[in-house]
Amino acid sequence: MIVADKKPVEEIIDYVTDCKNILVLGCNECVTVCEAGGKKEVEVLASTLRMCFLNQGTEVSIDEITLERQCDHEYLEEIRDVADRYDAIISLACGVGVQFMAEKYHSVPIYPGVNTCFLGATEKRGLWTERCQACGNCMLAITGGICPVSRCAKRILNGPCGGSSNGKCEINKDLDCAWQLIIDRLKALDRLEDYEKICSIKDWSTDRAGGPRKVVREDVQS
């Protein structure tokens, strides 16, 4: 899932400081799971903003809505009739949702309420770690299901490098060396011969190096 973190409230207040009608718009998907932009976080942010403004003696109306998703037309259409009522919309969705909102509703400024961080997994409640960089050319089949692109600090495809020490990466002693993990995993799978194969130069054109990307699936288009 897309992992996001809360933005400092002070930063959000700066965006909307002159607004009188504000909508805090949550998203029921990834940002709900990582506890940054779901219904609960919408309630807390809206309440915080209300108290801030009240304490400043400013009368501001703050509404709360949480959509199923903010990255699909049909869900964003649900606020079509109300969007124009606001001076500002704070979207607690990931960067995709914020942008899609801004593309759809031109008359209202859309502000981000979270910092979108990475594609990751929930290791435990309150701890999310990166697992994928969406390089567009998945090589997990040959690396034992452990991604050197997202988990190796150098993104090297034939590792480990000389900075690997006792299974940890030189940039941080708490960070596992991805290539050590790959070797351990391949050994456990009795597939160490795969490790001996030299990985050829990766086609990075499917990564961000090729500019903004798109997936076109004519077979599912209507």
Partner: peptide
């Protein structure tokens, strides 16, 4: 923390 931030 939130109450400190809001000035309450």
């Amino acid at each position: 923390k939130i109450l400190d931030l809001t000035g309450i």
